[in-house]
Design a protein around this nucleic acid. Structure first.
Lengths: 240, 240
DNA sequence: GTCTATAGTGGGATAGAC
DNA sequence: GTCTATCCCACTATAGAC
C-alpha cells in the first residue's frame, strides 16, 4: 500500500515491504508473482494454494507473505501485469489514430486481447474486485494507483483526439470512460464466446453510439442534460 | 426463504434440497436462514461462522450444508427476503403515484430503506454479481426468477405512469431500469454516509435527469441514438 | 532487511455412519 | 435429514539464519 512513490509506471502492490527495493528483493518478488500468474492461469484461483505458489517460486510460505499481505494481493499484482501490457499495447494504437471513436475502440479491444489468456480465472478475480472491503476492490486504496493510471490512459484517449464535447463534461470524461471500460469488463467476464467475439461486437457497436452521444452534448436541449450529469458526477466523486 | 407464497414469485435458493419440502424440512430451513440473518446483521459476514449459524439454529454444521451449498447461498437466501420486502413496499407507493420520475424514485428509495439494516455486509451481494461460474450470480439461470421479478417491478413502474418514450425503447426499458437499479446498488454498497444519505441524494438527482433523457428520445436527432441503443441491447440479451 | 522452517489456529467444506 | 469426525488451506506465530 503505502509506497508507490516514484514514477514507476505500474502500480505497486507492496503491502508489507518497504520502499527502496534491493535487486534481490525485487527478484524474489517477481519470482512470486510469476509463479502465481502461472498457477492462476493453469489451475485457477481456488486450486492455487499459497503453498504451491511458494514452492513454485522457490521460497517459503512465510516469505511469500512477507511480500504479499494476502492471496488476494497476489491477484492484484497479477492484474497489474495485465495493465502494463494493456498500457504498452494502447500506446501503439494511440500513436497512430486520431478519431475519438477509433481510439476508444482500439484501447478497449486491446484490453480484450491482453486479458484473453486469463479469462477463465478472471471470474474469480472480479468476485473479489467487486467487494468493497476487499483490498482488490476497484475502489480500494490498495488499487488506487492502478485505477488512477487507467483513468489517465482514458484521458490520453480523449486529449489527442478530434472529440468536441460540452466543456462541462470534459473534466469528468476520462473517469466516465473508465467506468465504461469497467462495464465492458463486467460483460467480458460473462462472455464465453470463443475469442470473446461477443465482447468485441459490443465494443464495435457501443463505441460509435457513445461517440454520437458525446458529440450531441453540444446541441441545445441536450447540453442542459449533459451539464446536469457532469455536476452530478462532480458532486459524487470527492468523498465517495 | 423460498416461499414468499404467491405463485412462487420469488426465486428459490434451494441448491441442494429437493422441491416438495416437508413441513419439517421447511422449518429447519427457515431456522437456519433466520439464524444466519440474525448473526449477519449483528456481526457481519466474515465474523459469522457456519458453526455459529448451525448452533444458533440448533442444527449441526453438516445439516446446514445439507440445505445450503455454501455460506454464500445463505446470503442469497437473505437477499431474497429483502427483495420480498422491497416488492411489498413498492406496491404501496406505486398504488398512489403516477408521475414516472416519482414512481421510479420512490421504488429506488424503498430499496434503500429496506436494505439499510444489512448494509454492512451487503458487499457480499456483489460477490455474486461478478462471479460467472457461480450459480448464484445475478445473471445466472439460477437467479433468473429473482431477476425477472425485479424487471417486472420496473415494468410496473413504467406501465401505469405518464411516461412517453420512443416506441423502440419501450420494450427494453424495464431491463434498462433494472440495470440502473443495479448501478444504484453498486453505489450504495460503497456508501458509508449515515442513513445512506448520499445514495438518496444520488437517486433524487439522477432520476429527474433520466426522466428528461427518456422523454428526449422522442426528439429528432436523439431518437436515432435511442434506437441504436435499443437494438444494441436487443442484440446482446438473448444469448448472453 | 530478507528468508527459512516449523508448528499452530480457525473456519469452510465434506464423508460417511445412523 | 441429521449427525460427528475429519480434511484442507489461508493465515499467523515464532525463532532463528544471513
Amino acid at each position: 500500500m503505502g509506497d508507490v512513490t516514484d514514477a514507476g509506471s505500474t502500480a505497486s502492490t507492496a503491502s508489507t515491504a518497504s520502499t527502496a527495493t534491493t535487486a534481490k528483493s525485487r527478484r524474489t518478488r517477481e519470482a512470486i508473482v510469476a509463479a502465481a500468474a502461472k498457477l492462476f492461469r493453469s489451475g485457477g484461483y481456488d486450486a492455487t494454494t499459497m503453498r504451491a505458489v511458494a514452492k513454485e517460486a522457490g521460497v517459503s510460505v512465510g516469505n511469500a507473505y512477507y511480500y504479499f499481505g494476502s492471496k488476494e494481493h497476489l491477484v492484484l499484482a497479477f492484474y497489474d501485469e495485465i495493465f502494463s501490457e494493456h498500457l504498452a499495447g494502447s500506446e501503439r494504437v494511440l500513436a497512430t489514430t486520431t478519431g475519438f471513436a477509433d481510439r476508444l475502440a482500439a484501447v478497449l479491444e486491446t484490453w480484450v486481447d491482453v486479458a484473453e489468456s486469463s479469462h477463465e480465472f478472471a471470474g474469480k478475480f472480479f468476485k473479489y474486485a467487486a467487494e468493497p472491503d476487499s483490498p482488490l476492490s476497484v475502489f480500494s486504496p490498495d488499487s488506487a494507483p492502478t485505477r488512477d493510471a487507467a483513468v489517465t490512459l482514458m484521458r490520453r484517449v480523449v486529449e489527442d483526439s478530434d472529440l468536441k464535447v460540452a466543456p462541462s463534461l470534459r473534466e469528468e470524461l476520462p473517469m466516465l470512460l473508465w467506468l465504461v471500460q469497467m462495464g465492458m469488463v463486467l460483460f467480458w467476464v460473462y462472455d464465453d464466446s470463443p475469442g470473446r467475439t461477443r465482447t468485441r461486437q459490443l465494443v464495435r457497436q457501443a463505441v460509435p453510439i457513445l461517440d454520437r452521444l458525446l458529440r450531441a452534448t453540444r446541441l441545445p436541449g441536450v447540453r442542459g442534460i449533459a451539464e446536469d450529469v457532469a455536476s452530478l458526477v462532480r458532486s459524487l466523486i470527492p468523498p465517495g
